[in-house]
Amino acid sequence: MSLSFEIQHRTGRFTLDLALSCQGPVTALFGPSGAGKTSVLNILAGLIHPQSGRITFQGEIWLDTHKNIFVPAHARAIGYVFQDGRLFPHLNVRHNLDYGAHLSKDRPARASFDDVVDLLGLNALLQRHPRNLSGGEQQRVAIGRALLARPRLLLMDEPLAALDVARREEIMPYLENLRATYALPTVYVSHSMPEVRRLADEIVTLEASHVTSHHANEPQA
C-alpha cells in the first residue's frame, strides 16, 4: 500500500501533528488512549476535515488543504470498523452487510457475500437484528459490512476494545484470517501491544499526538 499523509489539526487543548508514510499491508497505529489515534483514522476516513494537511492514497489525493481538495468519506472507497460497531438498528444483519455492497457495485469485488459470511461465521446471524447480537457478534458483522463495501483501504479502530478477553480471543482468529486471505491495505488502531504484534506488518507508535516510533513487525500467531 502507499498511504502517506501529514496532518496538523487542533481540537480543544491538543494539537495533532504528524507525518507518515505507510507500507503496510497492515499498519498498526499504537499508543495510549488520548494519543489521537482515532482522530487520525477519522481524518483518513474523511469524517474530520483537518485544519491543515495532505493525504494521498495510491497516487490519489484525498486531501490537500493548500489546494482546497477534500474528497468526502463516501467517495474514498474505504471500509471503517468502529470501536462501537455502529450497526444500523433498523436493518437486520443481512441488510447491514448489504448496505455498502449495494453502493460499491462499480468496483471489483475482493470477496463474495458468501465468502465473507463464511470467513466471519455469520451464517446463523443473517436474519437477526443488531439488538439481539452479543458484542462479539456485532463486531464480526461490522467487519463483514466494511469488507463487503469493497474497500481499497480498511480502517479499524480498536475493534476488540469493547469486548471481554474471551470475545477478543473469539474474534482474533477472524482478523488473522482476514489478513492472510485478502492482504487488504489496513490501518489498525489499538492500544494493546500483543494484538498489534499478532496482526501488523509495521507498527507506528503515537504519543501525545506525535509519532514517536515507526518500525517493521513480523506478524506472529
Binding site: A45, G46, L47, P72, A73, H74, A75, R76, A77, I78, G79, Y80, F82, D84, R86, F88, P89, H90, Y99, G100, L103, S104, R145, A146, A149, L155
Partner: peptide
C-alpha cells in the same frame, strides 16, 4: 450521527444517508 457517519464510510452520499438511515430512524 455516528450511524450517519458509518453509512457515509460505506459509500453513501449525504442524500442516501438521509433517505436510508436518518428518515427511517
Amino acid at each position: 450521527t455516528k450511524l450517519e457517519a458509518a453509512a457515509s464510510t460505506l459509500g453513501a452520499t449525504p442524500w442516501h444517508v438521509f433517505a436510508t438511515i436518518t428518515v427511517p430512524l
